[in-house]
Write a protein that binds this DNA or RNA. Structure first.
Length: 218
DNA sequence: AGTTGGATGGTCT
DNA sequence: GACCATCCAACTG
């Protein structure tokens, strides 16, 4: 959720990935504390925002007590309020990162975005930050402070608990086992806003993904 | 439907 | 200097 009152834009987090501890070979914290990952070592509830591939930002929520580096990467959000603001922000992002692309390609991308369903406006870690206007300035923000311009709020209590499925994390090929296969990507089953479709041909199965039972105690 | 390559700059072993 | 917690366009079938 970002902004104030009638200007607020918000959405439901439908997909996350966990990065936990110094031992996690996929985590930014695997080489210890650095300038970039410093907030991961701080108190929980804080935003960890970084730049990847020179153009996309990613939003994480620090999750463990001070001294224990851990965070959840927010991978997909289903818009609730301000979807058209998000669409405009996505289009603006596209324009400002046009690079060498031809005018035709840019126009095509813009048209595609104008026609895109609301559920695809923030359906990826980079897309979330483009849609919500999140960048490095948000690094260190207290997401649990109701006064923050970027913040988390609990789901409405009347909402039934969602069905959660879990599987391996994405794009961490550099990591060794067991970290490569840890089922630490979790998503709301059946959400139309996931960063990629659910487990292949989910058709009949039900046992297509593992559930997180208990991870190592700290 | 699935694969491939380009964009782009901060970070680190 | 190599790598990257990504996305998109353009290409194959």
């Amino acid at each position: 959720m970002r902004g104030r009152d009638e200007d607020v834009i918000s959405g439901r987090i439908v997909e996350v990935e966990a990065y936990r501890g110094l031992e996690d070979g996929a985590s930014h914290a695997r080489f210890g504390r650095t300038q970039r990952n410093a907030v991961m070592f701080g108190p929980p509830g804080i935003a960890y925002v970084y730049l990847v591939y020179g153009m996309h930002h990613c939003l994480n929520v620090v999750t463990e007590v001070e001294g224990h580096p851990a965070a959840l990467l927010v991978r997909a959000i289903e818009p609730i309020a301000g979807a058209e603001w998000m669409r405009a922000a996505r289009i603006a992002w596209l324009a400002s990162h046009a690079g060498n692309r031809s005018a035709v390609a840019i126009a095509r991308g813009r048209d595609r975005l104008i026609a895109a369903p609301v559920t695809q406006l923030a359906s990826g870690p980079g897309l979330i930050c483009a849609a919500f206007g999140i960048d490095a300035r948000d690094n260190g923000t207290d997401l649990c402070d109701p006064n923050s311009m970027l913040r988390l709020e609990p789901a409405p209590s009347e909402e039934p608990p969602p069905e959660i499925a879990c599987g391996p994390r994405v794009s961490i090929g550099y990591a060794a086992e067991p970290w490569l296969s840890m089922p630490w990507r979790c998503w709301m089953k059946g959400s139309p806003a996931l960063s990629r479709p659910g487990p292949k041909a989910a058709g009949t199965g039900g046992t297509d993904s593992a559930r997180i039972e208990g991870t190592e105690p700290q």
